[in-house]
Write a protein that binds this DNA or RNA. Structure first.
Lengths: 252, 252
DNA sequence: GTCTATATACGGATAGAC
DNA sequence: GTCTATCCGTATATAGAC
């Protein structure tokens, strides 16, 4: 697949993608593998409550339940998803479903905890391998886009259902949001200190970067329709942000 | 109130705001007045269905019903808002409520039609008074921010509840979204033709501008906490966008 | 115009059969 | 492990009093 982005923003593309260490296809594989571990962790964490003893079965059905929950909720909202809806989509009866969770609340908590931990784990693995501020900024942007692309249904769900979470879950979601913003603000502050970046309000800038990243997973169908790939969007986002932040970015 | 923005992004502030024609305070008054007309229109449009004959009463209660709907829905979602909730918040009994609308669906349709028309009317009034691309871009950004600030509850509601709209309502919402994007893309294309703007993908750029504008009304409480005013955010957003689009924008 | 009382339906959750 | 049948609470919408 040719990278349409290069024509629009010359100077940023192939080389950078290699430096960020991993193609999107590789990244997707990594996420898939990590999710299997995450499911096992979830099962272990709820061993006392989950009545199904066979691990194979339990994991297979948990996986089905989670992905059905995301699918239905992203169409009509978590509140509006009935247990009967979930039963239809998973092929399990309502009775059977209740041997995996005690109620919708717990289902939501389990799902959120698993996916949030998964995101954190992958982020920590992939960020922080560069010390140069420019590279750190580019990598952070690309990795976040890759991550939200590979886990799009959950990112969308998490954003749209934030207000329906229990207060403790909502707190965790908010602090994870602010943490992301701080990562970008820190990169910007360091770059400003070393003179690579222009003096711009780091928090406001980080906020706008986050808005640009969020647009990617919130408007997925629009980008699909326009045939914008995640790499093209990443190139574009990086160019947009660097035009504002980077000293001498007009050079290329 | 001192404009904190000027320190961060020198060169863009007071003069521009005057050129855009109207302070935010003026703008809020305009919206308030226009909404009264809009309520009268709504009443006229549903005269056959609304059983309350006294216009004063009908308008007063419609207004209460709409603002209560936004308030409750923005806390727990429209689906989760019960008629009993609405009854408590408006002070009207459930029976009385049903003499203003035939069901939640119709309530939603009435509210959406009224506020969407209001937005369109005000946008058309305020945009298009400049011919210079730079001024048009600045004005469009600031007006959109003013509008979403003055009508924040509805903008937030409309974004979050998009998936609950009936298919015809959803279509209208989507096309209105794309229309906004086209306004920005057009400004960018014209500026590129006349050489004021750099050659950048107009649609992708317009999409990112819209993402930046949406962040303002979606993350309202964050900005309130950080004491970022709408004018400060507008200055910052304009500087951010111009760094990417505008030829010689590094000058100031 | 607005209220209270109520019919009707739907969703969450459980019991007990297989 | 999973299913069917069912209890019970809550929500929408309406009827009829004031």
């Amino acid at each position: 697949m040719p990278e349409q982005g290069s024509a629009v923003v010359p100077g940023i593309s192939r080389s950078l993608r290699v430096q960020s260490g991993m193609s999107f296809a590789d990244f997707e594989r990594l996420v898939r593998a990590s999710r299997e571990d995450a499911l096992r962790d979830t099962l272990a964490r709820h061993r006392h409550a989950i009545q199904v003893k066979n691990e194979q079965t339990a994991i297979r059905n948990l996986e089905r339940i989670f992905s059905a929950t995301l699918k239905i909720s992203n169409e009509k909202g978590f509140q509006a998803m009935s247990i009967r809806d979930l039963s239809k989509e998973t092929g399990l009866s309502t009775g059977a479903l209740y041997s995996y969770f005690s109620g919708k609340d717990e289902l939501l908590t389990m799902l959120q905890q698993q996916e949030r931990d998964l995101v954190q784990r992958i982020l920590l693995e992939r960020i922080g391998e560069h010390s140069d501020p420019t590279e750190r900024l580019r990598t952070a942007i690309r990795i976040h886009l890759y991550l939200s692309e590979a886990m799009q249904p959950w990112f969308y769900f998490s954003y749209m259902e934030a207000k329906n979470l229990s207060s403790s879950e909502r707190k965790k979601a908010v602090s994870s949001e602010l943490y992301t913003e701080e990562i970008f603000a820190d990169i910007l502050r360091n770059g400003q200190k070393s003179g690579v970046f222009k003096k711009r309000d780091p928090l406001l800038t980080a906020g706008i970067i986050k808005a640009i990243l969020q647009d990617w997973y919130l408007k997925r169908s629009k980008f699909a329709r326009r045939q914008v790939s995640v790499n093209k969007y990443a190139d574009f986002a990086i160019a947009f942000v660097e035009a504002f932040c980077r000293e001498h970015s007009g050079a290329y």
